[in-house]
Simulated assay, not measured.
Amino acid sequence: MDLSVRETQLHEERRPFVRATVVRAQPPTSAHSGDSALVLLDGTIEGFVGGQCTETSVRAAAQQVLDRGESLLLRVLPAEYDDFPETPGATIAVNPCMSGGAMEIFLEPRLPPTVVAVSGSSPVAQAVADFARRVDYTVEQIRGSDVPRDSAAVIIATHGGDEASVIRAALDADAGYIGLVASPGRGAAVLDEMDLTAPERARVHTPAGLDVGARTAAEIGLSIIADIVRAVRSGELARLPKQARPVPRTAVDPVCGMTVTVAESTPHLVVAGTDVWFCCPGCRRAYQKEHAA
């Protein structure tokens, strides 16, 4: 499997995922240093970073990486194992079903670029778009009041016009940051004329941007993008696209007690009409043997 081609496809589709790479492995693990895989939002793993017990730990850690938007070093160890050099700052996962060996897997988030939708063609609007591209954000031009559904931030810099319609559309699109370029008095007047709830009004930043004493169009554009960067990095503005995020289903392996993510490849049995899930085929065989006796 050519993961680089798949990564490009996911990036073009704006689908978040995690790149998992084995950086250290000790026999008898089935994976080797350099093995890699992509972990999708629903827990699907494409590629190879170890057996199914390891995949369970990787899926759980990948969800954390996507939530935080930060890389993570995962140490996967068998139970009661201490013959693997310590790595400060690593997250440890103990797999009771592993037959031996130990691994370290580096997980890197691959998140779609933040989308900044801009309404208007004023010098401020142009400056916002320019600075957004400089920090690798995706810029979308708003036509009328048609706000893209995956917009993380919406900036209205028309200096008049039907600003209320764009603000309403941005609120309905669940944009995390809505900025109206206007003086404090005019901005408040625009919002006063709209039938907004208190939480909705609180989501609209006007004047938009950080208060840095900006006067020129370039300075105002810079202050707005700086405020969006602040919101993204602080966690105030979600980095994942505004889409229905699947919640991975989990179950407890009745043999080893490990919590497993239920996926198409997860070993399972149907016992008396009930699904029973396992971390690996070994636990499934042990369960079958015990209940066949």
Rank of each mutant, 00 (worst) to 15 (best):
T138A: 10
T138L: 08
V139R: 13
Q141C: 00
Q141D: 10
Q141E: 11
I142D: 01
R143W: 14
R143L: 05
R143M: 13
G144P: 03
S145T: 08
D146V: 14
V147L: 09
V147F: 10
P148C: 07
P148N: 03
D150Y: 14
S151Q: 09
A152V: 04
V154D: 07
V154S: 04
T158H: 12
T158D: 08
H159I: 00
H159K: 10
G161Y: 12
D162N: 14
S165K: 06
I167A: 08
I167Q: 10
A169T: 07
D172Q: 11
D174S: 07
D174T: 09
G176A: 10
Y177S: 02
Y177E: 05
G179L: 07
L180E: 03
P184N: 05
P184L: 05
A189T: 09
A189P: 01
V190A: 02
V190Q: 02
L191E: 13
L191R: 12
L191C: 09
E193I: 01
E193W: 06
M194A: 06
T197L: 03
T197Q: 08
T197N: 10
T197F: 02
P199C: 12
P199T: 14
E200W: 14
E200H: 14
A202D: 11
A202E: 14
A202F: 07
A202N: 06
R203N: 12
H205S: 06
P207L: 05
G209K: 00
L210E: 09
D211W: 13
V212R: 15
V212G: 09
G213Y: 11
R215G: 00
R215M: 00
R215S: 03
T216I: 02
T216E: 05
T216N: 01
T216V: 02
A217S: 11
A217K: 03
A217P: 14
A218S: 11
E219T: 05
I220A: 00
G221R: 04
G221E: 04
G221P: 05
L222A: 08
S223D: 03
S223H: 06
I224D: 02
I224M: 03
A226T: 12
A226Q: 04
A226N: 11
A226P: 08
D227L: 01
I228H: 11
V229R: 08
R230Q: 12
A231M: 04
A231K: 02
V232G: 04
G235S: 13
G235E: 08
L237G: 09
R239F: 12
R239T: 12
L240T: 09
L240F: 13
P241D: 09
P241T: 07
K242G: 06
K242S: 09
A244C: 11
R245A: 10
P246H: 12
P248A: 04
